[in-house]
Amino acid sequence: MAARDYGQYCGVTQALELVGERWALLIVRDLLVGPRRYGELAAGLPRIPSNILAARLKQLQEAGVIRRVPRSRIIIYELTPYGHELEPVVLALGAWGFKALGDPRDEQIITPDSMTMTLRTAFRPHVAADLPPTAYAARLGPADLLVRVDGPTLDVTRGDGPVDLAFATGAEIRRLISGELAPDHAIATGVVEVLHGPGNLLDRFASTFHLAA
């Protein structure tokens, strides 16, 4: 159990006691992308002290949110079914926080897992269902993601593969997703660099991934 006890009998209070400690939900966010080794979690959260990461992992295990699993002579951490129930909560929290998201501060970074969850948050399956299947290679700062959209199904992974459009940008992806910046203007001003494929597919991307700011 988490160290914090609010002394109230309430579902919200109980949830905060389980996952409300600092860093806990970010660990859950990254594990929603997929199982991770301890070192991978630490690399994705570079500011977390090692003792705090160890403590949060222990607390989340005790709460039944995550579990340790031996795999090929290493230990990985993964969400339990109970932990996976947090996905709509994390996505909704991300959409809510996006409304207040401004330009990044100098010390703020982009990670592949954070961008993966941003895309999952912004994905509009009802729009994608009426569009042709499309694959994108999105270079978002240091994060290289392969984004496949097939009807209402979204798959975001790291790595390479055949794509219809490859493009590069950074934190200013926020302006494209929010609709603040039109796709053609994003390309014309260099905010988005088209690396491969027809640039007009960026319109499809912006229609498929949208969050109100």
Results as ranks from 00 to 15, higher is better:
Pro35Ile: 04
Gly39Lys: 10
Ile27Thr: 03
Arg37Ser: 14
Leu26Phe: 13
Tyr77Trp: 14
Glu21Phe: 05
Tyr38Leu: 11
Ile66Tyr: 05
Gly39Met: 05
Leu25Ser: 06
Glu62Lys: 12
Arg29Pro: 03
Arg68Leu: 07
Pro49Cys: 06
Thr80Glu: 02
Ile66Gln: 01
Arg67Met: 02
Gly94Thr: 15
Arg36Ala: 15
Leu86Arg: 04
Tyr38Gln: 05
Ala54Phe: 10
Arg71Trp: 09
Leu91Ile: 15
Ile27Tyr: 01
Gly44Ser: 14
Leu53Trp: 08
Trp23Arg: 00
Gly64Ala: 02
Glu78Cys: 01
Pro70Lys: 11
Val89Ser: 06
Leu60Lys: 06
Tyr77Gly: 00
Ile27Asn: 01
Ala95Val: 08
Tyr77Asn: 08
Ala54Gly: 04
Glu40Gly: 10
Arg73Leu: 05
Leu31Asn: 03
Ile48Pro: 02
Ala63Ile: 02
Arg68Met: 05
Pro88Arg: 05
Ile74Cys: 05
Leu86Gly: 01
Pro70Gln: 11
Gly20Arg: 00
Ile76Ala: 02
Tyr77Cys: 02
Val33Leu: 01
Ile48Lys: 04
Glu21His: 08
Ser50Ile: 12
Tyr38Glu: 10
Pro81Ser: 09
Leu93Asp: 10
Ala92Gly: 14
Leu86Phe: 15
Ala92Lys: 13
Arg68Val: 03
Leu86Ala: 11
Gly94Cys: 06
Arg29Trp: 04
Arg67Gln: 11
Ile75Gln: 10
Ile66Trp: 08
Glu40Ser: 06
Pro81Trp: 10
Ala92Pro: 10
Ile75Thr: 13
Glu85Pro: 00
Glu21Ile: 04
Trp23Lys: 00
Val69Pro: 01
Ala95Glu: 12
Arg37Gln: 14
Asp30Tyr: 01
Ser50Cys: 00
Leu26Asp: 11
Gln59Leu: 01
His84Glu: 15
Val33Tyr: 02
Ala54Val: 09
Arg56Thr: 05
Leu79Val: 07
